[in-house]
Amino acid sequence: MPTADQALDVAALRDQFLNVVFDSYELTLSADRLVAYATSCGETAAKFTDPQHADFQAPPTIGSSFQPKQRFPKGFPTFHGLGMDAGKAVAPDKPMRAGVPILVQTHMHDIYTKTGRSGRMIFFVNRMTFSDEAGILLGSADTSIVIREKPQT
């Protein structure tokens, strides 16, 4: 895999990698996991905390916690430095339920650079979509990953 110690050609990366699904898998959420997720976040409504509730469902932001098996597409440059979440947007559309299989697919949605408090940073925005077995979209989540580049020596 190539490395990206030198200045990135962001335009070339965008051309090659944007909007191509690079990760896909299926998951099923357990009721216990949903309850633990919801209660640790402070949700108190029974539809999030009681598996016996008629409308028991995942808390709306849970899609943000799903992670692709691969963080970047195959052949994408590797980076030195600490990768951090720079921002997340989660857009639930329909409820996710315990025991129902969910297809999770990820593509790279944007790549850009900027300088911040921590020096030069490169942002990668991955978009993950969630759908049920019938192909109905349940929601999506955008994750901005920022890599703080180490200074050139």
Binding site: G42, M84, A86, A89, P92
Partner: peptide, 24 residues
């Protein structure tokens, strides 16, 4: 994000959260 969503539900229990967009 979960804290933020919970805060919204404490205020409006029937609210349907359609998007939470956060900058860290």
């Amino acid at each position: 994000q979960g804290f933020l969503s919970a805060m919204i539900h404490h205020w409006a229990p029937t609210a349907d959260v359609k998007k939470v967009d956060t900058v860290f």
